[in-house]
């Protein structure tokens, strides 16, 4: 069976202002269906900027991004319909109730009524927001916001699920459930692509890892091969980024 290319980034560049260095410098990467991809890097390495360009949130200076065969530059609506995005700050419409938000996202992605009800029940089983789904999102905790953001992002069963720092500030149970959902999404032949500082999570979850530093892609790791070796991902990360674990 031929695996579908879900993400194809070619020679991507971004500079926020003329005097600043490149935030993303000639970055290329590819992701396939049935994969979990991690993007790792220090703060300011260019991870979030890359995700923002992938999702059409900020314009691209040069280069190309194709999502499931659609260019984000020339076919933005089609490209955006292929993914679900969970931002690092779980920005959702605070004034809606949880169920209104999921319904809103289902409307935007044109999911029919029976399907959205069925999927919501499924997400409730795994993420378990319970009765709180009928409450206003402004009353939610950090973890609950993350759960509702995930439900909204997955309501259309996207081929590509993009997450920015998904594990930050989550309790162990929610972290476990998010990981489960990631594996489930992958098992259905879809792609999960996320950025993270959490080396342990990346090591356990990912099939392939891209390491970026100062906007440049500096390494690409096949985790199946990597796990056979004796080096930890943490050591490897510090080695390729030329960073030291301690300042002294």
């Amino acid at each position: 069976m031929e695996t579908q290319v879900t993400v194809k980034i070619t020679k991507l560049n971004k500079r926020y202002n003329p005097s600043a260095p490149l935030a993303v410098d000639n970055l290329s990467l590819v992701a396939y269906g049935g994969e979990i991809i991690g993007i790792m890097g220090q703060n300011g390495a260019g991870k979030t900027t890359t995700l923002k360009m992938m999702t059409g949130m900020i314009p691209i200076d040069s280069g190309e991004i194709e999502l499931c065969g659609y260019s984000i530059k020339t076919q933005p609506t089609e490209a955006k319909a292929q993914f679900g995005f969970v931002s690092d700050n779980h920005a959702v419409f605070d004034k809606m109730t949880g169920i209104e938000y999921v319904n809103f996202m289902a409307d935007i992605y044109r999911v029919d009524l029976d399907t959205r009800v069925q999927r919501l029940n499924m997400f409730q089983d795994s993420l378990d927001l319970g009765e709180a789904i009928y409450n206003e999102i402004s009353s939610y905790s950090h973890g609950m916001k993350q759960k509702i953001a995930i439900m909204g992002a997955l309501i259309h069963f996207p081929k590509l699920w993009i997450l920015d720092e998904p594990m930050t500030g989550l309790d162990p149970q929610t972290t476990y459930r998010v990981k489960e959902l990631m594996f489930e999404h992958k098992a259905n032949g879809n792609t999960v692509l996320f950025s993270s500082h959490n080396i342990d999570a990346v090591e356990k979850l990912c099939d392939r890892v891209y390491i970026v530093s100062k906007g440049k892609l500096i390494d690409q790791i096949n985790m199946n091969e990597f796990r056979k070796g004796s080096t930890t991902l943490e050591d490897h990360f510090f080695e390729v980024t030329h960073l030291h674990k301690r300042d002294d």
């Binding site: 419409f93 004034k95 809606m96 109730t97 169920i99 209104e100 999921v102 319904n103 809103f104 289902a106 409307d107 935007i108 044109r110 029919d112 009524l113 959205r116 009800v117 919501l120 009765e131 009928y134 409450n135 206003e136 402004s138 009353s139």
Partner: peptide, 30 residues
Amino acid sequence: IKKAFNKKIAMKKSSPFGAFVWKEFITVLR
């Protein structure tokens, strides 16, 4: 701390444009 309401409402379908207009309405109302 505000007690959020817990009124069970059912899902209903509308167009993306309608969903955006509805979102504006409840944002202002709430």
